[in-house]
Design a protein around this nucleic acid. Structure first.
Lengths: 218, 218
DNA sequence: TAATCATTCAATTTATATCTTGAATGATTG
DNA sequence: CAATCATTCAAGATATAAATTGAATGATTA
C-alpha cells in the first residue's frame, strides 16, 4: 500500500500520542486559561520544572501550545487551530464510551446537574435584561487573566463566605474552565443546596473566548 | 486539586494513547469499512497475526472496535459512539497545524484536487436527475460489504481497463474510504488527466454510512 | 474424537517514554 | 560585569509499550 498513507497515519499518531498523557492534558487545560510561566505550570500540575518544560516542548512540537519570552520567563499559551474542538471530541467520545469515566462523572456530580446548561447565546441575550448574575468560580489569578464581561469572581473554596453577594431573586449562571472542569458543577451543587437558582454555562471560559465573544481582564 | 479531575484526565489520556500508533489508526480505518477477521487485518496492515490481535484487543478495551465470533474466526467491526468524529477532529487539527502533514498532502495530491469535493447532500440531490455516475474506487471486497447505492465499483488499479464504462458526457463523483484515504484523490487525478469530468465525494464511505444515508450491499 | 484452523495468551526481547538529576543557557538586576 | 533567576539541555535510571516467539484455547471438520 502507498507509503503516503502510512506517513499521514504516523503524523496523526504522533499528534495523538502527545495527548496520551494526563499531565499533558492538564497542561493544555491550564494554558488554555491564559498565558502561564513554566514555573507556574509546574506548581499547578505538581511536576518538577524540568519535567514540565519537557512536556511543554513536546506539546509545542505538536502545535498544541506556543511560547514567548517575557523578561526572564517563558510564557506558554494555547496554540492555534481546533485544539479545543479536538479535546472536546475526545471528551465526548470518552463520555459516551468509557464505562469507567461515566461512572466517575456520574457518581460525583452526575445527578447534580441533569439540568441543561445555559448556552452562550442564551446568556448573551439575557445579559441586557440584567436579570442574570454570572459567576466565575475559577481561582482569582485565572479570573484576572480574562473572564466573561461583568462576571463576579468567587473561587469555589470561598463560596460560603460570599453567599451574601449572590442574588436570591434571579438566576445565577456559573462557569469555570471548560466542559471537563468540575468547579462549576460543584458550585451549582453547593448553591442549589442552599436554595439559589443556578445553572451552569455551556462549556467554560476558554470556549467562550474561542467562540469570539467579548472578554474582560482585570 | 481534586483527584477526580486527575482520574478523568487519565481516562482521556488512555483513550488518546490508543490512537497514538499508526498501525492502530490503520486498523481502525479498515474495520470502519466493515467487519474483518484478524487474519485479514494482519494481511492489510502487514503486521503479524499475534501482534494484530494484541492491537485489536487494546482498541477493544477503548471501545474503538467490537468483536464477534463467526465460526472459527473473530470478526472485528467499528465500535459505537463518535469515533469517526474524533478521528476527523484529529485529522482536521493535523491538517491545519502540522506543517509536515500539509507538505506531504500538498506534494502528492494537493494540487490535484483543489476543487471542492461534492457534499453528500449535493450528491443525493443530483442522484434523481440521473446526470451523475458514482464511482467507488475501493477494492472489491470492501465494496461488497457495503457501498453508496448505485455506485459503480472500479478498484483504483483496474481503472485503465474500465475506462470505457465511464461516461464522458456527465460528471463522475469518486469516493473511497474517508477523508484521509488517498484512493479517490488518485482516481480523480488519473481520470482528469484523461479528460473526464470528475470530482471527489466529501469524505468517504464510512462517513456516508455514519451520516445515516442509505447503503447497498452485494 | 482426532486433526485442523483462527485467535489469543504468556514470556521474552527490543524499543520508546518518562522522570530525575545536575549542569548549561539566556535574560535581567545589582 | 558578576550574581541571580527562569528555563532548557543532556545523561542516566526507571517504567511502559511494541514486536516476536511458541504454546494454549475454542470452534470446526474429517
Amino acid at each position: 500500500m502507498s507509503s503516503l498513507k502510512v506517513q499521514i497515519y504516523e503524523q496523526l499518531a504522533e499528534l495523538a500520542k502527545m495527548l496520551g498523557s494526563a499531565h499533558r492534558l492538564e497542561l493544555i487545560e491550564y494554558v488554555s486559561q491564559g498565558e502561564r510561566s513554566v514555573e507556574r505550570l509546574a506548581e499547578l500540575t505538581g511536576l518538577t520544572v524540568a519535567n514540565t518544560s519537557q512536556h511543554l516542548q513536546l506539546l509545542r512540537r505538536g502545535g498544541y501550545v506556543r511560547a514567548r519570552r517575557d523578561g526572564k520567563r517563558v510564557l506558554y499559551r494555547l496554540g492555534e487551530g481546533p485544539i479545543l474542538e479536538l479535546l472536546a471530541a475526545l471528551h465526548c467520545y470518552a463520555e459516551r464510551n468509557s464505562a469507567e469515566i461515566r461512572e466517575i462523572v456520574g457518581d460525583y456530580f452526575g445527578k447534580l446537574d441533569h439540568l441543561e446548561p445555559v448556552t452562550r447565546e442564551e446568556l448573551l441575550g439575557r445579559l441586557d435584561d440584567g436579570d442574570v448574575t454570572i459567576l466565575d468560580v475559577r481561582p482569582e489569578d485565572e479570573f484576572s487573566l480574562g473572564h466573561v464581561p461583568g462576571a463576579l469572581n468567587v473561587p469555589l473554596g470561598e463560596l460560603e463566605q460570599h453567599l451574601s453577594e449572590l442574588p436570591r431573586n434571579h438566576e445565577i449562571v456559573a462557569y469555570c474552565r471548560g466542559p471537563y472542569c468540575i468547579l462549576s458543577f460543584e458550585a451549582v451543587a453547593a448553591l442549589r443546596a442552599r436554595g439559589y437558582r443556578v445553572r451552569r454555562l455551556q462549556d467554560g471560559f476558554p470556549e467562550w473566548k474561542a467562540a469570539g465573544y467579548a472578554i474582560e481582564a482585570s
